[in-house]
Design a protein around this nucleic acid. Sequence first.
RNA 1: GGACACUUAGUUCAGUGGGAGAACGCUUCCUUCACACGGAAGAGGUCAUUGGUUCAAUCCCAAUAGUGUCCACCA
Length: 862
Amino acid sequence: MLEKRYDPHQVEEGKYENWKSKGYFTAGDKSKIPYTIVIPPPNVTGKLHIGHAWDTTIQDIIARYKRLQGFDMLYLPGMDHAGIATQAKVMQKLVNNGIDVTKITREEFLKWAWAWKDEYADNIHKQWAKMGISLDYTRERFTLDEGLNYAVRTVFVNLYNKGLIYQGERIINWDPVQQTALSNIEVIHQDDPGKMFYFKYPIVGENDSLIVATTRPETMFGDVCVVVNPNDENLKKYIGKKVINPANGDELPVIGDDYVEIGFGTGAMKCTPAHDPNDFIIGKKYGFPMPIIFNKDATMNEKCGKYCGLDRFECRKVLVEDIKAAGNFVKTEDIVHPVGHSERNNCVVEPMLSKQWFVKMRPLAEQSLKNQDSETKVNFVPERFEKVFTSWMENVEDWCVSRQLWWGHRIPAYYNKKTGEVRVSMDPPEDMENWDQESDVLDTWFSSALWPFSTLGWPNKTEDLDRYFPTDCLVTGYDIIFFWVSRMIFQSLEMTKQRPFKNVVIHGLVRDELGRKMSKSLGNGVDPMDVIEQYGADALRYFLTTNSTPGQDMRYIDEKVQAASNYLNKIWNSARYVLSILPEDFAPKALDKKDFAPLDQWIINRLEETIKNVTANMDKFDFNAASSHLYNFVYDDFCGQYLEMSKVALNSDDTKAKEITNQVLYSVLKNIILLIYPYTPFIAEELYLNIPAHKDSVMLEKYPLYNKELVDESSEGQVNVLFAMIKDVRNYKIENKLAPNAKLELKIKLKINVFDAFETYLKRFTFSDVEFVDEIENSGDINVYNEGSMLIKNEAGKEDLIKKLEKDIESIKSEIIRCEKMLGNPGFVSKAPAEKIELEKNKLEQHKKNLAELETKLSSLK
RNA sequence: GGACACUUAGUUCAGUGGGAGAACGCUUCCUUCACACGGAAGAGGUCAUUGGUUCAAUCCCAAUAGUGUCCACCA
């Protein structure tokens, strides 16, 4: 017997471990059609946040839905080593433990990092379990494990041999805190307040000067020339002359290039090829030297004279003061301009000339774009995100993949100690003593990009790869379309000649109650484990997946989780009630619509309709729409109507009616449990295990299928009359200030013969005394229905009743006017579809009929 | 500078080319034998603004305003 109150903790206790130990999460049934989802591997840097909970719950709903539909469901788990983020955290931990990280070796560090990984992986496993994520742990992978390293090396060597990976000296984004290169998308441009400095660059040998503006005076030590537009009437006379760099007194040539925009700024631009991507292009074009003026930690280096050793921002201050003192300062302006920050630690990124490894993106991007025009395109849900992907691909630049870190896949390149020859190969050269391996590792996203196939054993031709790849569905947030989705697509197409997934379901971000992004600095993050502690995993899951439309952001609102919990309590209690009625020897039988009373038929019609709608929306990944169909069915149809009305049959002497009612109650309850199961597996399992004739787990059941054979709408009209009567009686009692259980004298006449079907219901449920008459007296208070009428003898509240009637008549009159206007419009009659016209005609007729009846009633009342 | 999204009830959000919906909140009533984490009844909206397409626009199109997000090397 179920407890009176749904207690999520009691319900959720032990279920996950049971499922897992029984092997229900394990894929591999060859008799079924495979369906594959790989988890977006969370970083081993910390615990899962509410965004992860959303992401994985969507996946789990799909997984549980597909599994119940009879697919061989593979939901593959794993985690990401998250190079920079993890290395930073482990280093911090070592510092906190008093370890001198400057003396530590690569090997020692990696030992610490692996220990860290184990600890955090353990934590994440526990969180997945709490949330009920049905992952196949027999196939769990880590982006840094042996097999994935093999895949990474294979891809690197392959791309290198095709000329799609190269080593080059280019301007990259330098993170001076982590002291590593970053890719473009790891840099966040934000508008920061800053200053534009204007300096005089005196002309050599003349009493004249050029005014040059810059936001980064400290880079002046790397200036190689000043550029003006050759068509600039005011400035072209300076081309060929030399100017003095006010920072260090160097003589710089003035050159002409139409890259510089006339009229922008002062019209003269200083060129620092080693520290600005545009200047780099110019520097290269004219063959200038490219002096690097920063150390790796972004302090000034020896090229900066007395400023050597100063922090870049400190240098800026001092230098500006010195230029002022020398009389070359013109002015400053306060400006707001975009400044690049490291995505990981928010420090200001420094553009810096550096030798790094790059992936040549153009050919790979072209291939990905071309694939979107084919039948095997990746289907974005919602569709609009495809444009985000394609426009990025169209403009993508080469991808800097080398990182100056330890925690990651070490690049399989080797340098010959004597000749300097570079060799890229799967395995180290045989005479390794003569070679040094590249010390850099690869960008974390390089290995993540291979995730959908590397986890299945690629490049080996494994059974799993053959069976489960390409995967069916990837679920992720729109914020990592560039980082991850795009890269999986091009790597997969290049390496496997197949798309990595058929569908990619994009969701938004979880925001706080005020719509703000959750962040550590605001301290407004919500820990899913706290929510589970308070409301249970099922309520959290239900809330997360039913409160937004696909691709849209969502706010975390505590009351809504509470509402979800109330809904589950509602289902719980209805189940408790149904189970309390079913006889001990109850045995489910196949339903046959010829046994149904009109009410039974009605609820079965509603159920089948619900199954159809839920399934259709599940298939579209629209979980909000799917769940609301079920919600309405549970509250309005099942609990609101059928559960109450069926009490009549249950309390009657009609054993046949009782038996059918029991069968219907059982069937509806079981279907509700199965339909809610993907969302809230714990409570579904608990209820399922309490219904008669259950299997060992709800996970062994079959998902409901729409069954047309059970549907019959011929008695809908009768049921609707009944419901309308009940509603009117309730209204009547309220309007007349009668107690809900007050006895009423009613006279009812129905044109269609539903007396047999409803007499008991009418007597038992809503009314206390029902009197049936053949004719309705044209006096007293009368409520009229399409198929009949109901007479209520009434003395009290006559005035209120008249008021209400008048109000109803007003609104129905305006409806009639609307209909008549429409039907009187020649445009409508000639152009609207025939069925629309028919519909309006019927409406008008109905309204007129209702109006006449209301008016009769009103006049009889008066 | 480009691109995308959003603007609907007090709040958070669904939705549809032809009579405006949910949840929460609010008002009134009810502890009646599944559930007061409940039930019944109800109030509350010129669907941002202005044009256009259409027989018909909250919905499609365009512009405007506001909000948010992403992309972008402009000194």
